[in-house]
Simulated assay, not measured.
Amino acid sequence: MSLRDRLSALIAAGGPISVAQYMTACLHDPDFGYYAMRPAIGETGDFITAPMVSQMFGELIGVWAAASWELMGRPAELRLIELGPGDGTLMGDILKTVRHAEGFLEAADVWLVETSPPLRALQADGLGERVRWAASLAEVPGGAPTILIANELLDCLPARQFVRTAIGWSEQVVGLDADGELAFGLTSTPAGALLPDAQPGQVFEQSAPQAALGAQLGARIAADGGAALLIDYGRAEPGFGDTLQALRRHEKVDPLDRPGEADLTVHADFPAVMAAARAEGVDAAILTQADFLARMGIGARAEALVRASPGRTGRIGRQLTRLIAADEMGELFKVCAIHSPGWTPPAFED
């Protein structure tokens, strides 16, 4: 049996499933899910993340973490947490950087929140005994200020999709066509769904898990102090659009083709995440990735790397372009800070 067979049987027995349910199965089914069985990250895999583009990215996140700790008053106990740490490259670069901040590593209790067994194995190989693991943020002990990083995590949290038709809203679902193949279709919208005004044909995505994470981060930071940094591709303002995509070997493929064998994502809904966090009594702000990295000094860091390795000038220039150019990651990717009131994290000052 394949995941396609399992989903087809589920739909045949109980009717169409939401896009969110489909995403969850494709990514996390314990037998066939992408992250459970075959995550493929990097140049030879299905997708690449900013920490793999250049060491500069992780180094500047490390600088941000150390500077935030300083602004928080150098607490003697700190939870340094990464959600969805991939192959461990980002945390590795962060730890190499923060060792230059006297006292930081002595204060930091380092946690990785990861549910994928294959990725945990990669993280252990790269990071060794310096870190501990949890299956959820709730498992990480509270009681101390938090500095939390999540790079390209929100886009993996499932969303439902609603389509405005000529007669009202409908929900886009995954069902079976006349030939028994997986297919998108529309069904009536559940009573009580809160949906905005829209024109016919517009698609509105709603991710309860993304908003729930914003609330969870807000509650934790309100209780213990600290800051979270969320980096992802997505929108800074509420909007419409069908952003569901599947990536296999760096190419977009049909999301319904070979379920469980490609990475499925939707755009991060930063407005919903920030609103949920603020409702818990904390502050939130957002920048483009280009602005954030520029304010953190990526230009100067690139120049230093070129001076140290002139033979890598072209490569470093290409890496810099990939991270900050408007037609690469610079504008589509956003950086959101959620933080306790009374101070402003680095790069987010007016």
Results as ranks from 00 to 15, higher is better:
Ala223Thr: 10
Ile221Leu: 15
Ala215Phe: 02
Ala193Met: 15
Ala191Lys: 08
Asp232Ile: 04
Arg235His: 13
Gly241Tyr: 09
Gly226Met: 14
Ala208Pro: 00
Pro196Ala: 02
Arg248Trp: 09
Ile221Glu: 09
Leu256Gly: 14
Ala223Asn: 07
Gly192Thr: 03
Ala223Asp: 08
Gly201Pro: 00
Gly214Asp: 01
Leu229Gly: 14
Leu194Trp: 01
Pro200Asp: 13
Ile221Phe: 07
Arg220His: 02
Gln210Lys: 04
Arg220Asn: 05
Gly218Tyr: 04
Ala236Met: 08
Gly241Val: 13
Ala223Val: 04
Gln206Arg: 14
Asp257Glu: 14
Arg258Ala: 14
Gln210Tyr: 06
Gly214Ser: 04
Arg249Ala: 15
Leu247Val: 06
Asp257Phe: 15
Arg248Glu: 14
Ala262Thr: 13
Glu205Cys: 03
Ala191Leu: 15
Leu247Glu: 03
Arg258Tyr: 04
Phe240Asp: 12
Leu217Gln: 02
Val203Trp: 12
Ala198Lys: 06
Thr243Asp: 10
Phe204Val: 03
Glu261Trp: 08
Gly218Pro: 05
Leu229Trp: 11
Gly239His: 05
Thr189Phe: 01
Ala222Cys: 04
Asp257Trp: 15
Leu217Met: 01
Ala215Ile: 07
Pro200Leu: 11
Gly234Glu: 00
Ala246Cys: 08
Pro259Ala: 05
Gln202Val: 03
Phe204Cys: 10
Glu261Ser: 09
Pro255Ser: 11
Gly218Ser: 03
Ser188Gln: 09
Gly214Asn: 00
Ala191Ile: 10
Gly239Lys: 08
Arg249Asn: 08
Asp242Lys: 11
Gly239Asp: 09
Asp232Met: 00
Ala215Lys: 10
Gly226Asn: 06
Tyr233Asp: 12
Leu229Thr: 07
Ala262Arg: 02
Thr187Glu: 13
Gly260Asp: 07
Pro255Lys: 07
Gln216Pro: 00
Ser188His: 09
Phe204Ala: 10
Pro238Trp: 10
Ala236Asp: 15
Ala198Asp: 12
Pro259Val: 05
Gln206Tyr: 05
Leu230Met: 13
Ala219Ile: 01
Pro209Thr: 05
Gly239Met: 03
Glu237Ala: 05
Arg220Gly: 04
Gln216Tyr: 00
Ala191His: 12
Leu194His: 09
Ala246Pro: 09
Arg258Lys: 15
His250Asn: 05
Asp257Met: 13
Ile231Glu: 02
His250Arg: 09
Phe240Trp: 13
Glu237Pro: 00
Asp242His: 13
Ala211Thr: 11
Gly226Asp: 08
Phe240Ser: 11
Ala193Asp: 00
Tyr233Leu: 14
Val203Arg: 15
Gly185Leu: 14
Pro238Leu: 06
Pro238Glu: 04
Pro238Ala: 08
Gln199Thr: 11
Leu194Val: 15
Ala193Trp: 01
Ala212Cys: 02
Thr243Gly: 09
Ala236Trp: 04
Lys252Ile: 02
Pro209Met: 02
Gly234Val: 01
